[in-house]
Design a protein around this nucleic acid. Structure first.
Lengths: 156, 156
DNA sequence: ATAAGTGCAAATACTTTGCAAAGAC
DNA sequence: GTCTTTGCAAAGTATTTGCACTTAT
């Protein structure tokens, strides 16, 4: 707001394009390794800085940290994800009717004002993240699931 | 399974007790700082090692990384959470009927086998995590929400 | 011309790990 | 007594930051 705002550079645009054009839900390192051959004068710090910028601008969303690395999605439309705890693969859930899914969630979570007694604090929520953790088809035979939890079979 | 299994020590039990007896959804550091005055000969590494152990045993669940720190919940019953992006506070969502919530989610995510065509890969899922990100009542007036996202007001 | 974007390397911060000593049963 | 747990400090790893230089308009 304080004057001229520049929002583009070749590198910035290339980084966003890479994130948008993959279904791999990449981390910063993946983006860097993919672009480095094409843009030799690229540094990892720039990838980090731009991803931070994109997130602030709402151009990418964070899916959280998987195996120590933060992962991102260029598809900012809210939708649930599956994460393989072992190999770190992240896939979209092809939810048959995402709007229905969303609507049901909202109804459950936004009760009428008078449903609860006592004093209530208002949270202003702008991001909903639903992630299912487990093991993908390649990893499921070699590694155990977490103890004490139900098992859901989800087909993608 | 390879002989005798020991699962308890004074420190281990105390760490679990601290995690179970708070609603703050603590990280390792918080647990350490809370126990250190009571158990002077306690090290942070032990807290980390035991939390890892508890998670493997299904005694605590991870809520993901908030502001760079992994947070945990001693209540392993699946339920959604609210996270304040600014101050890092994590609170439970007092879902009026968690079973209903769960059942609806399951129906939406486990379509009949023939709903999709093509070859499908099976994910074995054991953990469901739903987190809503935003700003709590104390922080909402000072900081902006993320751009390009809907706003949900959630009362706790 | 001028403010934004970037490379590089150092700094940060959380978490994990190796090994010898202490603890549990 | 034997195997597990722990303290301590070092190592590991993802991410951020400071500063001088470059790029975009």
């Amino acid at each position: 707001m304080n004057g001229i705002e520049r929002k583009h550079s070749k590198k910035r645009d290339a980084i966003l394009e890479v994130i948008r054009s993959t279904l791999s839900h990449p981390g910063a390192q993946w983006v860097y390794e993919r672009l480095k051959p094409v843009i030799p004068g690229l540094s990892l710090g720039t990838v980090y800085r731009n991803i931070t910028f994109f997130r602030q601008e709402g151009l990418v969303v964070s899916l959280g940290v998987v195996n120590g690395e933060e992962r991102f999605d260029g598809d900012v439309k809210p939708h649930p994800h599956l994460v393989c705890r072992h190999c770190g693969r992240v896939v979209d859930i092809p939810c048959p009717a995402p709007e229905t899914f969303t609507a049901i969630l909202d109804r459950g979570l936004m009760p009428p004002r008078d449903r609860f007694g006592g004093n209530r604090e208002c949270f202003r929520v702008d991001v909903r993240r639903t992630v299912f953790y487990g093991l993908c088809g390649s990893c499921v035979e070699q590694y155990p699931l977490e103890k004490g939890r139900g098992i859901y079979q989800i087909f993608i």
